[in-house]
Design a protein around this nucleic acid. Structure first.
Lengths: 342, 342
DNA sequence: GCCATGGGTCGGACTGTCCGAACACTTGGT
DNA sequence: ACCAAGTGTTCGGACAGTCCGACCCATGGC
């Protein structure tokens, strides 16, 4: 093990070939004689040659985009959805802000693109990215199942910033809804609340594969002191349904997205924080001051950028064999809708 | 913008300096005359120079590691736990095998260390790693809450290969139990099973923050055609308790860790796969042929290594501000305990 | 006058890739 | 028999930014 690690050049010297031929042979280029290629592969195996992926990525980039030098540019791709609610638009903006900040720190730059509807088509996007020499893309969350399978993924590395993407199945980054709600409920229990209730829109939970509801039930099951208030999961927000549920099951704290529930609770005679409490599952959605969960879109954007740059440095383009999901727990935000101590 | 993007060399030519001096100046080296440095910085600003981060990373690695025979060494740290069951030991081995393979591909190498009990103490480990110039560590799962907070984390980057580590709070990599069980139940439903039952040891689910149980209940709640068999979650495996549950709730397929349940089912008159089915939640634990989930320890080890090397390349040591959890879904394995079609 | 010191600058070497040039050899038309 | 065109294979140049050792030159002590 005293010898320095073998390189393309040392290998070529031993074989009596040029470094170029060795490189081509190892990458399976059609230009080299099959016999020569086999010879090279065997010698590489025996010498324990390991290609330097960093150099590979650099050179590939450098040569391919000759003239138009490497800019270190990443694309943030937004699926153009016309009637996106304000909080979702803000979540997207925060994701991009976080991604941009981290990108700059690592010597990259982010450009925004919009596809579908008023934006460009997928084919057009492919052409634009290729022309600009962009090989890393961050896909922003889409309400409907996004489809970018038409992109030529052999030339791109991608990260999705929501739970699951199937077309194609990329690595993704998103909040840890399950763990965050468990932690929030634990905090409520520590504050003395014993009858937590969950108030959700059905579609919101479905998108997360029922993680909110699952965490809520798991908490109830595993804590004997907690009274099992059944979660209220509705098709659309409606006052009557909520009031009926609230009167019947008497939760002492309600956890949900929509802060209009606070008004309805007060309409039933509740006084916050004196008699009851409220926690918002996404502070970007609150329309009045209250405690809640910050899903940390900036941090998610930053982490997505880190993962993407990691892939580029390993020269890993294409669809991963085993897509992974990276999650970050939400950050608790105090507010006037909860009592401060037992 | 007709000119090609400025490089260190083009910048140096204009300034009448060498590329080295320009590089040093821009990176704020002490070796350069402050006046020269300022001149360089201004010229770079005016020319719109942007350093190529890929080339930077490559060269930094290349130059720094010259002379040192190995590109980089990572440590795999195992918490020495005396009475670890055989399947856990195998899971650990597979994790390391996956990590080693990926490390080699990326030009790194892995060395194994064992701490606690018969292994070295944490203080000693710190000294050893420092002396060996090792800055990346992969922590293997520990049954009890592991504690490595005494390591001088300002000098290390670390990844834990299980759900959560609090001392210190590092990034972690682990299987996606929640999603995997949901997917498995969906598959069973597609095969025609309508009364799935879950059989768990309490401690096993607690360690995962109840994710098995939570996924099971979430599936029942969201699928009207599925009969809600209550999960059997026991303190210790015992035949009588299982048989009572099995007779009373009549599940048509049982999902659990311990394959001894198959014997008990057969004792109750079940015939697999004719009348009933069984799925093992971790194929490393099965003691007889059956369908189940491969939690993919090799892939997890590989991904942990990638994340760790990413941190090292970004020069990120210490405890992350926001620890993330990266999960990979389990891989379904067919077996003779399930019918093959509707 | 000589040598040691040190601040500032420079050149060499390093990685793998891509493209066009170069070369050897075959084929087909005249 | 000769040349043009085509085919198959190999090679060399250029490229990025960094680190280390070498080098130049001014200064100061003896």
């Amino acid at each position: 093990m005293a010898d320095p690690a073998p390189t393309l050049r040392s290998l070529a010297r031993v074989l009596g070939l040029s470094r170029t031929t060795v490189s081509d042979a190892l990458r399976g280029s059609q230009r080299v004689d099959p016999n020569t290629a086999e010879r090279v592969r065997q010698a590489a195996r025996e010498a324990g040659y390991r290609r330097n992926p960093l150099a590979g990525a650099l050179m590939s980039e450098l040569r391919r985009s000759r003239g138009t030098a490497f800019h270190g540019v990443l694309a943030a791709i937004d699926f153009n959805e016309p009637d996106r609610p304000a909080h979702a638009a803000r979540y997207h903006r925060e994701l991009v802000v976080g991604a941009e900040a981290r990108a700059v720190e690592l010597g990259f730059k982010i450009e925004k693109f919009s596809v579908g509807h008023a934006g460009v088509s997928v084919q057009r996007l492919d052409a634009i990215l290729q022309a600009r020499g962009i090989h890393g893309v961050i896909l922003l969350p889409a309400w409907d199942e996004p489809d970018l399978s038409n992109l030529d993924w052999t030339r791109f590395a991608g990260i999705y910033t929501d739970y699951i993407i199937e077309r194609p199945a990329l690595h993704s980054v998103c909040p840890d809804h399950y763990r965050s709600l468990l932690a929030a409920l634990q905090r409520l229990a520590a504050l003395g609340y014993r009858r937590p209730g969950l108030f959700l829109q059905k579609h919101a939970d479905e998108r997360l594969q029922y993680r909110w509801g699952a965490a809520f039930r798991a908490f109830q099951e595993s804590h004997a002191a907690i009274k099992p208030v059944p979660p209220l999961i509705v098709d659309a927000f409606a006052k009557e349904e909520f009031v009926r549920w609230f009167r019947r099951h008497k939760p002492d704290v309600v956890v949900g997205h929509n802060t209009v529930a606070i008004d309805w609770m007060e309409g039933c005679g509740a006084e916050l924080p004196a008699t009851h409490g409220f926690v918002c599952l996404n502070v970007l959605m609150k329309t009045r001051p209250c405690a809640g969960l910050d899903l940390q879109p900036r941090t998610l954007g930053a982490r997505a950028t880190e993962l993407l740059i990691g892939q580029l440095q390993r020269n890993e383009t294409g669809i991963p064999e085993w897509p992974s999901t990276t999650t970050i727990p939400a950050h608790w935000v105090d507010g006037p809708t909860l009592r401060t101590a037992e």
